[in-house]
């Protein structure tokens, strides 16, 4: 599903990622861990083609992102659900409209919008908040809206860069468990984080980055301090 081959990414000569090889299969659930500056966000940005690698290949569903034209980037992104640390919600719009925003922009008809938004909100357990505004929600609820928006198009891949960075530990665990539930329905999920307790509570695949290199990649893994 997600494959990186000898990927290097330099920012003005200094490497942010060096020679990363990685494969994440269909429906897999994985953490990307590492200390600040390890290159987690850089790797994520390569996956949704916000950046291109300096060398090497990034493939999603077998499609080499290097070969994507500018016009094809939106098509790639429609197959990805992206979740942000800062939620990126529109405060002037209701929960429902936040989730519906992109569907409407893509010209989906209103009945279909209602159906899809309704079921996405059901997945994250926020149907009762559909008419609230983001500012009236807790951080955890706001992130659930972000997740609902990411899955509303039914993407095969979910990418979350530090989705719990702004949340307290209990809420963080709930969010990650929600993402795990979503992955059980066949969605590939990649979560970047440096939240040790969460990673260790989940016991799932852990890919550890350090100074731009993959230093560990284990199933049922721990996030150990010496990795960092």
């Amino acid at each position: 599903m997600i494959r990186l081959q000898n990927v290097c990414k330099n920012y003005g000569g200094t490497p942010a990622l060096s020679n990363v090889n990685l494969h994440i299969g269909l429906g897999e659930f994985a953490f990307l861990v590492g200390p600040s500056g390890a290159g987690k966000s850089t790797l994520m940005r390569l996956l949704y083609r916000e950046e291109v690698p300096t060398s090497g290949n990034v493939l999603i569903s077998g499609v080499n992102l290097n070969r994507l034209s500018k016009g094809q980037i939106p098509l790639l992104r429609r197959r990805l659900g992206i979740i942000f640390q800062d939620f990126k919600l529109l405060n002037s719009q209701t929960v429902f409209n936040n989730v519906a925003y992109v569907l409407r922009a893509l010209g989906v008809d209103e009945r279909e919008v209602g159906k899809r938004v309704g079921s996405a909100l059901a997945v994250v357990g926020l149907e009762h908040k559909r008419d609230s505004y983001p500012t009236e929600l807790s951080g955890g609820e706001q992130q659930r809206v972000g997740i609902a928006r990411a899955i509303v198009n039914g993407p095969p891949v979910l990418l979350a860069d530090e989705p719990t960075g702004n949340l307290d530990p209990a809420t963080s665990l709930e969010i990650v468990q929600l993402l795990e539930r979503i992955s059980q329905r066949g969605t590939t999920v990649l979560i970047s984080t440096h939240d040790q307790p969460i990673v260790n509570a989940m016991r799932r695949r852990v890919i550890a980055l350090k100074k731009g290199e993959v230093v560990a990649d284990v199933d049922n893994g721990y996030y150990e301090l010496e990795m960092a």
Binding site: E50, P74, R77, K88, L90, Y101, V102, L106
Partner: peptide, 16 residues
Amino acid sequence: HKEIEILSLMGVGHLY
């Protein structure tokens, strides 16, 4: 800019 960023990251074409 926030709307624009969201639309762009969610796969809405830049023409639109």
